[in-house]
């Protein structure tokens, strides 16, 4: 669904690249946590998928298409296939819950009938039935984030990108949000979530890709927030559940170098 082919992104030539020949593949229907400290390249990763930025080198494929080859007038079509959720919700303060979710359908020209059918359905999925006519400031943070998620998935995107969606929420509320995201993932949507929230990562036990200074530090299936060392081995013979199967795109030397860095 998403494939990075030795992607490098340089914003400013004087500093190090935000992403440095990153290669990875995320399959349809996967749930992936993108972890790493601030400045590790998580947001750049998400922006490259949306074609908000273009890769300096390498190729980004979304749904089998090299985004560099998508002409500017077809970028909206790419974005209709991707839902996005942010830490700060980004709701329209003067629109009701229903209006905020409907907005995403109005602007791509859906008819009123379809909107009136689809919006209550998706609000039910995120657990907001009965709150259609509330304004954002009348909702709790968790409820606002549910509205944002509803808006992101109302057009049935194949991919949902979430940039620290629980960053502003308390642990209990976060867990509720994770249940919603998991439910959306169960329905077949690929979910990529950038996060700092170790509790959630440890709870969910999904694939974890850790970035540091623009390179992939580890890529493990059913992993924890802090890696269980030894992490990456090109041959994966250390008996620890690792993601070697997924490391096919990472070269052997790079994996070894990373393992050495990690203290092996």
């Amino acid at each position: 669904m998403i494939r990075f082919d030795s992607v490098t992104k340089v914003y400013d030539r004087k500093t190090r690249p935000a992403l440095d020949s990153v290669s990875l593949e995320i399959d349809r229907g996967e749930f992936v946590f993108l972890v790493g400290s601030s400045g590790s390249g998580k947001s750049t990763f998400l922006r490259l998928v949306l074609k908000e930025e273009l890769a300096t080198r390498g190729a980004v494929y979304v749904a089998g298409q090299n985004v560099a080859n998508i002409s500017s007038w077809r970028v909206p079509k790419l974005r209709r296939g991707i839902g996005v959720v942010f830490q700060d919700f980004r709701l329209l303060p003067n629109k009701t819950v229903f209006g905020n979710v409907a907005f995403a359908m109005q602007v791509i020209g859906r008819s009123r009938g379809i909107i009136n059918d689809r919006v209550p359905e998706v609000l039910k999925t995120v657990g907001l039935e009965g709150k259609e006519n509330r304004l954002p400031h009348e909702l709790s943070g968790g409820e606002q984030q549910r509205v944002a998620i509803a808006r992101a998935v109302v057009n049935n995107p194949g991919i949902l990108l979430a940039d620290e969606p629980t960053g502003n929420l308390d642990p209990t509320t976060s867990l509720g949000i994770m249940k919603v995201l998991d439910k959306i993932n169960q329905n077949g949507t690929t979910v990529v979530m950038a996060t700092h929230d170790d509790d959630i990562v440890n709870e969910m036990r999904k694939r974890v890709i850790e970035l540091r200074n623009g390179v992939i530090l580890r890529d493990e299936a059913k992993a924890l927030y802090t890696s269980m060392l030894p992490v990456v081995r090109a041959n994966g013979d250390d008996g620890v559940p690792t993601a070697t199967g997924r490391m096919r795109a990472v070269s052997g030397e790079r994996a070894d170098a990373l393992a050495k860095e990690a203290g092996l």
Partner: peptide, 17 residues
């Protein structure tokens, strides 16, 4: 800019924005 930002993200066409 809030509205247009969201419009871009959900894939509104250049014309609509």
């Amino acid at each position: 800019r809030r509205e247009t930002g969201i419009m871009r993200l959900v894939g509104a066409s250049k014309t609509v924005i």
